[in-house]
């Protein structure tokens, strides 16, 4: 057990925690832990992150099921749709320059964050707790 192993465990713990609460796979957090923290190459970090997402999502997902947080039908539809989307995306993969894709993607996230914040803020003003 080396310091870098401990860093991986600590980083994994934090990424897993965000994954469990926010509902994301954790890949966007796994990659910088490896590239910034351990100077691993981008390609290896991305491939390794894809592998690490699977057990993380399985444990988080099963815990959510047991906690009664999951509405089964939408989850199944999204999972099925996502698989089809992933396969189609790989088949028709157009060569879009990485930075452009990242910017479009970033704009979508910022817009979503803004809309979610507004929605939360309105409920806050109405004084609804749930």
């Amino acid at each position: 057990m080396t310091w870098s192993d401990l860093l991986l465990i600590a980083g994994g713990l934090a990424a897993g925690f965000v994954s469990g609460t926010v509902g994301i796979g954790g890949g966007l957090l796994f990659v910088p832990i490896m590239t910034v923290g351990l100077r691993v190459s981008q390609a290896v970090a991305q491939g390794t992150s894809l592998v690490a997402i699977v057990p993380t999502a399985i444990v988080g997902g099963i815990t959510h099921l047991r906690e009664g947080n999951v509405t089964i039908r939408p989850a199944l539809w999204m999972g099925g749709g996502g698989v089809v989307g992933a396969v189609l995306g790989a088949l028709v993969a157009v060569e879009v320059p990485g930075p452009i894709l990242a910017r479009v993607w970033g704009a979508f996230l910022v817009f979503s964050a803004y809309r979610l914040f507004i929605q939360g803020w309105r409920r806050y003003q109405r004084g609804l707790s749930d």
């Binding site: 509902g23 994301i24 399985i58 099921l65 947080n69 989850a75 999204m78 698989v83």
Partner: peptide
């Protein structure tokens, strides 16, 4: 959030 994490399992 919970649905998303469950849906990620088959996708990943």
């Amino acid at each position: 959030n919970a649905n998303s994490l469950v849906a990620i399992i088959p996708i990943a």
